[in-house]
Simulated assay, not measured.
Amino acid sequence: MHVRERLCVELAGLRADWEVWCARRGMTTGEGARQLITAALDAEGADSDVPVATGTRSSEVDGPRRRIEVRLTPAELEAVGKRAAASSVTLNRWIVALIRAHLTGEPQLGQVEMRLLSDSNQQLATVSRWLAQLARDAAAGRLTPDTESNIGAVRQLIGTHLRAVTALIRASLDRWSR
């Protein structure tokens, strides 16, 4: 007896785009998913980075879950659906994030926020390299008149990063606390 192995994935409004992407490549949606999974596993076997966005949750969230039923009016359901789509998450994930934000008071980040934080972390890596170079120059006594402007540029980049992350977290908390 042949056993089929299946993976069900909630595409959260991406289904049409996924079907177009696969059709342009002349494959079914299932074959496209298999190819992406194979590429990710091959990259993992080669010990290289796979550009996949992942969100981690606290260990408390990773524990067992229980299903509940929430009954909404059609208008409420439509409003929640629009907000979930705007956050690029499923309806269930949006509702869970809303509840968690109210219970914990911590930000619940969606795909957009995670991408912004990733970009911000790349900028911090650049700042780190600049600071290391400045420290090496200072230790070697090679400080130049440009050093002050470099330090000012690093300080400005750090400030930009801090403001961006603060605004992102504040926006997330404001969104869920309404």
Rank of each mutant, 00 (worst) to 15 (best):
A40N: 09
G105M: 07
I95S: 00
A97Y: 00
R25I: 08
A125N: 15
P74W: 03
M114H: 05
Q108V: 05
M114T: 06
Q35D: 10
A85Y: 00
Q108A: 05
W21P: 11
R71V: 10
A23F: 07
A53K: 07
T73Y: 11
T104Y: 09
C22L: 12
I99W: 00
E113W: 06
M27N: 08
N121M: 14
S48W: 02
G26N: 06
E60C: 07
S48Y: 06
R83I: 07
T29R: 06
A135I: 10
R93V: 05
G105W: 01
L134Q: 11
Q108D: 00
E60P: 05
I68A: 11
G55Q: 14
H102A: 14
M114K: 04
T28S: 13
A43Q: 04
R100I: 07
S118F: 07
V20T: 14
R24H: 14
R136D: 15
T90H: 13
G110S: 08
Q35I: 15
L103W: 01
A75Q: 13
R71D: 15
S88Q: 11
N92S: 15
D47C: 14
I68T: 12
S48H: 11
W21A: 02
G105I: 03
I68H: 00
R66I: 04
S58N: 12
A85G: 03
T56P: 00
A53I: 00
G63T: 10
R66D: 03
L36F: 07
T28D: 00
Q111A: 14
E113Y: 02
T54D: 09
Q35H: 14
R71L: 14
M27W: 03
V96P: 04
V96G: 05
M114G: 01
E60N: 03
D47W: 09
S88D: 04
E78M: 11
A23E: 12
V20F: 06
G30R: 12
H102Q: 03
R25E: 01
G45W: 04
I99D: 02
A53R: 12
L117N: 06
R129K: 13
G30V: 05
